[in-house]
Design a protein around this nucleic acid. Structure first.
Lengths: 155, 155
DNA sequence: CCCGTCATGTCAACTACGTTGACTTGAGAC
DNA sequence: GTCTCAAGTCAACGTAGTTGACATGACGGG
């Protein structure tokens, strides 16, 4: 796994603004990085990375999810899922059991160790968001959510 | 170059919220994707991808930037910069000239074709932001900027 | 004039993350 | 018994990044 850290900093570059929305555009870039920086650092120390976290995050919120459903949510191929998923199983951060009746699908679930790592990694991200929301106040946070929703739902 | 497109859609998955900030966390993820989806699609059609766009974006805002400075802003190694940069030069989207006095550095500049592609790709991203800001109104947009700034500057 | 340094360029080897295509295995349904 | 479905696996590939080592050309000083 790569050294995703980069020493945690990498000051925002100051570039001339050619358009009125350039500042916003760059904020999206640096915002993503600001949110994920510490989490990626923590994950790297565990020998994990973002794809592993994505799996842990989804399984945490959908216990007993089948592999096919996980593939669909993550939007990657089963071959791409294979490697990180197996690592998580080997490390016993996830368990897979065959469903009692639907014996052809496997149901994924976090172990306690898996839950701990998922929570700590996500906590790093939530901590950053919480600090920003606290500074902005509830109305600011609500506005942020509304704008992000509109951006996310662009199709 | 990969098919970054994925048919432009990939509905947001509905996951149970374990924490109050999970919704915000997911919005950051899907927001980034929502903003970049069409731009990546456009770039893929030009046989380019995100790293190329990052180069074009920076050079557009820092004409006559030297390679070393570009490397620093992008935060990647010169070896990593090499491939995409050379492609852009070959395609004549960028020009490089040696500086008159400081003859050891090379100065990068966009050609007209480079400017056009940079602008169109960035326009796709700005279009998404503009739509979201229009829906939220000026105060909402300002709040979004403030929150994103706080998130980005987390260290 | 030579030497060191600086900016750039390039080669090789590696890791990670993703793709497509082809094939296997095991379970269920008819 | 055959067909289908979920999952697993293998091979080959593309792209994006890394580190390490080394070459080249320009400049500055002794």
């Amino acid at each position: 796994m790569a050294k995703t850290s980069q020493a945690a900093g990498l000051h925002r570059a100051s570039l001339a603004k050619l358009h009125d929305l350039d500042a916003a555009l760059e904020l999206m870039y640096y915002g993503w990085r600001g949110m994920t920086l510490e989490a990626d650092d923590y994950l790297a120390k565990q020998g994990l990375s973002r794809p592993h976290h994505r799996i842990l995050y989804v399984v945490a919120r959908r216990p007993d999810i089948a592999i096919g459903a996980l593939i669909e949510i993550l939007g990657i191929s089963k071959q791409a899922l294979n490697r990180p998923l197996n690592l998580l199983l080997e490390r016993k951060l996830l368990t897979s059991k065959r469903s009692p009746e639907q014996h052809r699908s496997k149901l994924l679930r976090l172990t306690d160790a898996g839950k701990r790592i998922e929570q700590r990694a996500s906590d790093h991200e939530r901590k950053v968001l919480r600090a920003a929301f606290d500074r902005a106040g509830a109305p600011g946070a609500a506005a942020w959510m509304a704008v992000m929703g509109a951006i996310a739902d662009n199709n």
